[in-house]
Amino acid sequence: MSSRPGGAMNVFNRNMKRKQKTWAATLPDSEKYDYLRDEVGSRVADRIYDIARTFPLALDMGCGKSHIAEHLSKDVVEQMFLTDISDASLRMERQSEMPTHCMMADEEFLPFQENTFDLVVSSLSLHWINDLPGALRQVHRVLKPDGVFVGAMVGGETLYELRCSLQLAELEREGGFAPHISPYTAVTDLGNLLGQAGFNMLTVDVDEIQVHYPGMFEIMSDLQGMGESNCAWNRKPMLHRDTILAAAAIYKEMYGSEDGFVPATFDILFMIGWKPHESQAKPAKRGSATVSFADLAKIRSQTSINTDKSDTS
């Protein structure tokens, strides 16, 4: 792992990621592997509908085949820029109501001027970014004041079943293990990351999506079809065939259900952050409180007495 200026890590091979995405987008049956992106894209769109506003200009960074815009109406977003690192994905852009402009651009280097967009969205692409704090700072920069960022990324305990099975299989077959699943952002870090990038009024939540597959081979094949193969620099370039066979057996034994299916868990982290503007609600001025914090204990003891009474009766 080499580091970049500013303390940012260089964990992922972005060029490899571009190749994987391009390869996946050119598969003849590539739309078969869009189920997770479609689902999460619609959930991001849901969160945009929750904001009672019309956004004149929006940006989807890392749009893939544009899985968010197709769920939005032109009353919500009037015009949209779509960026992705793979031009092959962009060429397969989905139909949407509003006019869109496609651009091939790396999420790590947004080629837009300061204060350009009213809304920035991103779905399932931030987890392959090396410098996440830097990328969020760039999102903050291209947003207009009072603009909002709505994002979704995989994180947390995503694919823990696959991670555990591969580790046990490698231990037993080869006597040691190497990482095969990419490192993920923890949900507890996300608030800090957004805050440090300058966002306020933050909302962070996690959805757990569990997909059932016939077996481990289908999971691996689908991940590859999504363009979601690992691209970390320190990944082991090859998985031994014996190890795959062993891992499939362990996966089935540890996590398989009685009807023969095995689950794969995706933890989707959703985040919403606003670029500060004077019109937004602020914390009250220091010393403006009319009730002392010292009295809080009294209020609580009063209520607890009341509930105690009701409990004993």
């Binding site: 046990l168 299989a169 037993e172 016939p214 077996g215 081979f217 289908e218 066979l245 062993a246 499939a248 057996a249 362990i250 089935k252 034994e253 540890m254």
Partner: peptide, 19 residues
């Protein structure tokens, strides 16, 4: 997957041993 399905008994024995 097809080959693996034919060896489900052996896979279960190995899986139990590791788990």
């Amino acid at each position: 997957p097809e080959l693996f399905a034919r060896c489900s008994a052996e896979a279960a024995v190995y899986g139990k041993c590791v788990v």
